[in-house]
Design a protein around this nucleic acid. Structure first.
Length: 639
RNA sequence: GCCGGGGUAGCUCAGUGGCAGAGCAGCUGAUUCGUAAUCAGCUGGUCGAGGGUUCAAGUCCCUUCCCCGGCUCCA
């Protein structure tokens, strides 16, 4: 049956298969059969229902939960159902906004009483009822002024405020089971399309993210196209919790934050400190190989220095109050750059020395609002793996290429080989000329393109002194973390009036590049802990080998082996306690020590070592020398 | 900073007005054992800090410090 004659529809499925259809009811059937929740027409994403308006040739794409757009529609619809449930249970609650997020959705409510965890259960039950009713999502287009009247009558002040900002004459509203919400859509066809959902948490959130505006109550949730995937996601959240660096930091005795010392200030315990030292040694060696010069600089400097650098003008809100010493004000350093510049300025520089690369593991202190502090990932005192490169303008691109290579090499050593790269351009508050910004930005762009690295532009997110490249690493759970940054700086060379002597014998202004590869040792360590789930590769493991004895008569032999291994530079411990071997293995495995060496009568008689890995796998037996060879090559490989 | 939830032994946590608890860890002893927890005993507390209510406060009230979740993603 072909009612509209000449109807010719090209239907594309989620897996890119295509099919020609000339009948609307057939189209409907196909969409349903393939799990479509919405469609993309030439005019954009639409409700399934809107295909009835098709009269001519058209291409229709089936949108399912498996696409980003599909998930967004699906979860946005779930948020509507949640708002519906909340309105039924708490009629006084006012609706704000309820979008989908990357992993779920939320809805903000203005309600006099904050939600509790029990409320979430009640709301979930109500949502299940609404889903069971399988209410149709009905779209209506009405004049904006009618919508304003409607929502005014409903007491939905926030919707009225949103409407006032919409420029269009007409707006769309969606109704489902008597629940009406202002919404652009599209939506799933009916509430029954939502197969699996879960409310996750409650939080405060400012209306429109503005801290001067009212604090609303936000409920977060997520939804999936089936229970199995929802379960998988909830398991993932459990895994994230298990890997939390704050939890592992305590369990493995890596670091602590003491209330007595202050929030955001890190104490590195022996187990964490030895990892840090190993990272620092690696960092130092590689920098020397890469023609960097190492510097050390003080933690405080005269306030004037920060005046001169412009930090007092542009960075004051992140700086601590000055302290007075013999009538002169000093300031805790929030950045290392002015110190490196002072070293540069200490003698006359020639273009022949360029590029000059100064690197420092420089500890800086920055004020962060108490609410944003987070374990090792957001702190108030941290050590940057900082460097400043002084070069000519025509050397920028090569240097950036250089740094990109270096960064990727360092990150790869720690098992990070997937990145998101962002190029941040000029912000509202900035220094330097537009021409400078333009030139530097295009140098960064060209370097990225030459390396064949894909990147996104982050408009207006550059630092006040220059454009930058940020590299976010993806960890083993595919979460993104901001660590590396490469920034061009044309503020400081001007402000400090630094120059170099060119081949023409005249003074010129150098370009400065500021870069950090791991970012801060604290944050990088936090990310590493979660990335490895505390199971550090051998070269980083705080204790690399633990020697366990079967009985007390094996102690002497075990101590001798320990001495030999320590002599070879390994981090070794012995467990000579009067405990059963099962107990010792358990204790050592929980501490995630890579190698367990077990010594009993048999080993002493044969002069060999029984070796067990933390995974539970037994290898060997080996002679001591064989074992040393194996672990040496494993340490060298940094795997 | 703001909203909400928390802070009890080294760790994980129970304890809603009436004698501060458990498991693990630690210490002591017994056992001398072959691949993820041997047994017994003991020690351990300013219940985050300060103030208040009460015959009596870990518990109720106020203040404060710290921790946790969140505060960009615009119907």
């Amino acid at each position: 049956m072909n009612l509209s004659g000449g109807l010719k529809i090209k239907l594309r499925f989620a897996d890119n298969r295509e099919k020609e259809i000339s009948d609307l009811s057939e189209l409907k059937k196909q969409l349903k059969k393939n799990g479509a929740i919405a469609v993309r027409l030439d005019s954009g994403l639409k409700d399934l229902d809107s295909i009835k308006e098709i009269t001519l040739q058209a291409s229709v794409e089936a949108i399912t939960f498996d696409s980003i757009d599909g998930r967004e529609i699906y979860r946005h619809s779930t948020s509507h159902v949640m708002a519906h449930a909340v309105k039924e249970l708490f009629p006084a609650a006012k609706l704000a906004i309820g979008p989908a997020t990357e992993e779920g959705f939320y809805y903000d409510f203005d309600i006099d009483r904050p939600f509790t965890l029990e409320d979430l259960n009640t709301i979930e039950k109500k949502m299940t009822e609404i889903i069971k009713k399988d209410n149709q999502f009905i779209r209506k287009t009405i004049p904006k002024k009618d919508a304003i009247d409607l929502f005014k009558k409903m007491g939905e002040d926030y919707k009225v405020e949103l409407l006032a900002e919409i420029a269009d004459e007409d707006v769309s509203i969606y109704e489902e089971g008597g629940f009406v919400d202002l919404c652009r859509g599209p939506h799933v066809p009916s509430t029954g399309a939502i197969k699996a959902f879960k409310l996750l948490s409650i939080a405060g959130a400012y209306w429109r993210g503005d801290e001067k505006k009212k604090m609303l109550q936000r409920i977060y949730g997520t939804s999936f196209s089936n229970e199995k995937d929802l379960k998988k996601y909830l398991d993932f959240l459990e895994e994230v919790k298990k890997r939390d660096h704050r939890k592992l930091g305590k369990e493995l005795d890596l670091f602590s934050i003491s209330e007595d010392i202050g929030p955001g200030l890190i104490l590195w315990h022996p187990n964490g400190a030895i990892i840090r030292k190993t990272i620092e040694d690696f960092w130092m060696d590689e920098h020397l190989k890469a023609d960097y010069k190492i510097l050390y600089s003080p933690h405080i400097a005269k306030l004037n220095l920060w005046q001169k650098s412009g930090h007092l003008d542009f960075y004051r809100e992140n700086m601590y109050s000055p302290m007075e010493i013999e009538g002169i004000e000093y300031e805790l350093k929030p950045m290392n750059c002015p110190f490196h510049i002072s070293v540069y300025k200490n003698s006359l520089r020639s273009y022949r020395e360029f590029p000059i690369r100064y690197a420092e593991l420089g500890t800086v202190y920055r004020y962060e609002r108490s609410g944003v502090l987070h374990g090792l990932l957001r702190v108030r005192g941290f050590t940057q793996d900082d460097a400043h490169i002084f070069c000519r303008e025509d050397q920028i691109e090569d240097e950036i290429l250089n740094i990109l290579d270096f960064t990727l090499f360092i990150l790869k050593t720690f098992g990070f080989d997937s990145y998101d790269i962002y190029l941040s351009t000029r912000p509202e508050k900035y220094v330097g000329t537009l021409e400078n910004w333009e030139r530097a930005t295009s140098a960064l762009k060209q370097a990225l393109e030459k390396k064949g690295l894909s990147y996104e532009i982050d408009p207006g997110e550059g630092v006040f002194y220059g454009p930058k490249i940020d590299i976010k690493i993806r960890d083993s759970l595919n979460r993104a973390w901001q660590c590396s940054t490469i920034q061009v700086d044309f503020n400081n060379p001007e402000r400090f009036d630094i120059t170099y002597r060119g081949s023409d014998g005249k003074g010129h202004r150098p370009i400065m590049i500021h870069r950090a590869l791991m970012g801060s040792l604290e944050r990088f360590f936090g990310v590493l802990i979660e990335h490895y789930a505390g199971i550090f590769p051998l070269w980083l493991a705080p204790v690399q080998i633990r020697i366990l004895t079967i009985a007390e008569r094996h102690s002497d032999y075990a101590s001798e082996i320990a001495k030999v291994l320590k002599g070879e530079g390994f981090r070794v411990e012995t467990d000579l306690e009067n405990e059963k071997i099962g107990h010792k293995i358990r204790e050592t495995t929980i501490r995630k020590v890579p190698y367990l060496v077990i010594i009993g009568d048999k080993e002493i008689a044969e002069g060999k070592l029984a070796v067990r890995k933390r995974s539970g796998e037994n290898i060997g037996p080996f002679t001591t020398n064989e074992f040393i060879g194996i672990i040496k090559s494993e340490v060298d490989s940094k795997q």
